[in-house]
Design a protein around this nucleic acid. Sequence first.
DNA 1: CGAGGGTTTGAAGTGCATCAAATAGTGTGG
DNA 2: CCACACTATTTGATGCACTTCAAACCCTCG
Lengths: 245, 245
Amino acid sequence: MQQHLLEHIKAIPLFDKSTPDLLGRLAQKSREIEMHKGQLLFVKGEAAESFYLVTRGWVKLFRETIEGTQAIVDILPQGHVFGETSIFEDDAYPYSAEATEPSCVIAMPLSLLKQEIDANVQFARSMLSAMARYRRQQEQEFEHLTLQNAQQRIGCFLLRLARQSEQGPTEIKLPYDKTLVASRLGMQPETFSRALTKLKQTTGIEVKGSTIYMDDIAQLANYSCNICSSEFPCKDIGGKIVSKS
Amino acid sequence: MQQHLLEHIKAIPLFDKSTPDLLGRLAQKSREIEMHKGQLLFVKGEAAESFYLVTRGWVKLFRETIEGTQAIVDILPQGHVFGETSIFEDDAYPYSAEATEPSCVIAMPLSLLKQEIDANVQFARSMLSAMARYRRQQEQEFEHLTLQNAQQRIGCFLLRLARQSEQGPTEIKLPYDKTLVASRLGMQPETFSRALTKLKQTTGIEVKGSTIYMDDIAQLANYSCNICSSEFPCKDIGGKIVSKS
DNA sequence: CGAGGGTTTGAAGTGCATCAAATAGTGTGG
DNA sequence: CCACACTATTTGATGCACTTCAAACCCTCG
């Protein structure tokens, strides 16, 4: 049982250079949590004792105003870690976390993370790198939200989803329902629907339910990414080079 | 001369717990740069060899698209450090930096920072905390941009400026010209002007040139901060408590 | 088959951007 | 101290993107 958890934990990039000893202790003290759709893992402000790894499904991180409107912080797929920065936030979670569909996470004690930072410079360095990477990503999201319109944001999102697949004609599936994608991209569901329709006309993509076919990635990239500050394609697209202009 | 630099460097929170030795070496290898208004310190993508401390004036961090539209990353006052995270960004600056008025900065070698991270766990920890703090700030900015309208963003900005001063009637001066404030808050100068006018009517503030009088901070906070996710007042306001609703 | 959520479509409104022009402010040289 | 030049700021008019509210549609699952 713990063995199975260990496998998951080993695969976390943050623990790339960690000793088997640390990994073992983490696995020892961790527990697996099955979550049903809509289940809350923790709420903002709650005392933080664990950080988490998503092993199945999707976890939504968000904050909400008094009136109940949500600001989506992030939506994490399998393999991603969250809650680990709470070490620096007065041991309180800075957002709430909820499963957007049947999901599974592994909870690991933050205390081990703290110890490791103090004991292992190499690890502290990894964590710094991870935070810097995350920060860059945030900055990019910020820029997208300011400079791109709804259609371009969607296009950019699709391109990032397609990053693993081949050049040329590609088929992707939206990872979660359209309403959630919309809020992830900072727009209303209605706006998402309309913008997607326009995007079809402009870039020749095809949409059938939650599946999207892209004949010509370059055309989509050209339409969506022209506005970006400089890096092209977006880091997240994974270094694939698509001709500009 | 280097003595004078040392004083500035000592005051940087990041080096709170650093040894006199490190501080000395930093001062030794640092140099002071006088900048005139509009002067570029470095541009995005440039090889990063130094990080900087603002000792006078204001430094604008920004990126720009091919078409020349700028996205303001931050505008830093005296006492703030920037460029230090370039260690993690392939040694290239992730933004451009420019003085928005006659300013002075101290340039310090990034190499010393790298060494110190590897040599001193305590320091690595400080840096992690600093990055976490910065990140929280970014998240808040993000939230503001999404949830608040132009008037509320201005109100929030004023409240943060007023944080040091007393409860009750307060007078503040805008730190830089209105056009720059506008871009800092993600809006056009025209929008800023109009929104400020509306804010006068709504919250009873008074504006004369770049000076702003606030009779009733609570009223302004009430109008501007209701939308925020939860923390009230904003962390940056400095923990001052203003009655809600 | 019917209920309920997700999705689309329509109509109308709002906020901000944009373009254009007037006005206020500031620093300059005479 | 004034007039000019130049920039910052304000004001007006208009347009567009997105939101909001409302209703229809579609799909899935009990």
